[in-house]
Structures are given as C-alpha cells and as structure tokens.
Amino acid sequence: MVIKNLENKIKLVMIICALFLAGCVVISLSSIWTARSMVVDAQQKIYVLDGNVPILVQRTTMDETLDVEAKSHVEMYHHYFFTLAPDDKYIKYTLDKAMYLVDETGLAQYNTLKEKGFYNNIMGTSAVCSIFCDSINFNKEKMEFTYYGRQRIERRTSILTRELVTSGQLKRVPRTDNNPHGLLIVNWRTLLNKDIEQKTKNSY
C-alpha cells in the first residue's frame, strides 16, 4: 500500500514537472517571438530632429517608393544636363553631376552637342538655358520612362522655347553621394526637340 501511494506521488510529481516544463517552453517561445517583433518594428521607425523636437518617421523599402524616386532621378538628370549658363566652370559642374546619373548614352549626346559647338555658342552669345518638366511617364514593370519638358534659351535679344521629349530605361545600382536614388538611366535618347516659340526681347 505504501509502495502504491509512493508510485502515485511520483507520477503526480512527474506530471506536474512535465506541465511546468511545457509552460516554461511556451512562455519562452512567446517571449522570444514578442521581443523579435518589437525589434523588427523598432527598426522600421526613425526619429528625425526638427530643432529640438523628435519626429517619428516610418522607413520604407525602395519598391514602395520606386515610382517617386524614378521620376525624381529622371527630372534631376534633365535639370543638370539642360540647365546651362555662359560659364565654362558651371557647365562642367552641371554636366559632371549629370554623368553620374546616366550611362554612356548621355556622354554620347554630350559629345555630339560639343562637336556641333553648342556649348561654345552658349558662351559666345551669353545664353542662359533652363528646363521645365511638364510630366514624366514611368512604367514600373519595364523600368522605362518618357520625359516631357520645355527648354528655355534666353539670349541678349531673344527668348527661344523648345519642346523636349526623351526616353530611356532605368536600372538599379548602389546608392552613392553622387547618385542618391540608386538608379542609372540607360539607352537615353531624344525623341523630339523642336522650336515652339521665339520672342524678341525689348531693347531700351
């Protein structure tokens, strides 16, 4: 009888120990899962200081912002390539910045314009060139874009407005200080570049 009671107590202790061990495993696993979720969630949040006030911002992946970044990259390239002043150092500066954003097709167009004396003409006539973006169509699946804009060329006696349409593709590259969007324009080509308006400036 004593032996039987002892066996029952041992079984009871074993059951209690097994339940306790199972509970510890469940609690440990749930704690690990909760902690991991909290760490992942914390890593997606960034605090930016606005003066002395921290502002919570949410991190996003490049896939989520690709459309915006692609259009910004294309607009930035055209701004650097087509915004020119009668200053050889400034022209070199803007074109050097543009070449970081495009493949050899951009360099080929630059060399063509240089051979035709386009940049010398800007210097000789004191022309100021600026570009205005009308719209950018971007196909996310094919990574293709079409840029629609107007170029304004102001000389001493006239203001010429040209319609500009270009196209190309984008490919992903590592982000750098000179290429903050991590994109590179490839197969860039001009589809349309024609005069649409010319005004004679008033001379006093």
Rank of each mutant, 00 (worst) to 15 (best):
S135E: 04
L84S: 00
L29V: 12
V2Y: 05
K201G: 01
R59P: 02
V26M: 13
L66H: 01
T166P: 07
I27E: 07
E75C: 14
Q169S: 13
K89V: 09
Q198R: 10
D87K: 10
S37I: 04
S28Y: 07
L6K: 07
K11D: 10
F138W: 02
M76V: 01
A127C: 01
S126G: 03
T157P: 11
H79K: 14
R156S: 15
N52Y: 09
Y147L: 14
K45M: 08
L6Y: 08
L101D: 00
A70G: 09
K9R: 11
S135A: 05
R152S: 06
L19H: 06
D96H: 08
L12T: 06
V165R: 04
K116S: 07
P180K: 12
Y47C: 06
W188V: 09
K9G: 03
N187P: 07
K116V: 04
S158F: 14
P180L: 13
I10N: 07
H73F: 11
G149C: 09
T94K: 11
L29R: 12
S158A: 08
H181T: 12
F118M: 02
L19K: 04
S167R: 14
C129T: 08
I153T: 03
R150K: 12
I16F: 12
V40L: 11
K4T: 13
Y110G: 11
N121G: 09
K171S: 13
A70P: 08
D134K: 06
Y47S: 05
H79N: 14
D87F: 04
W188N: 14
L29S: 10
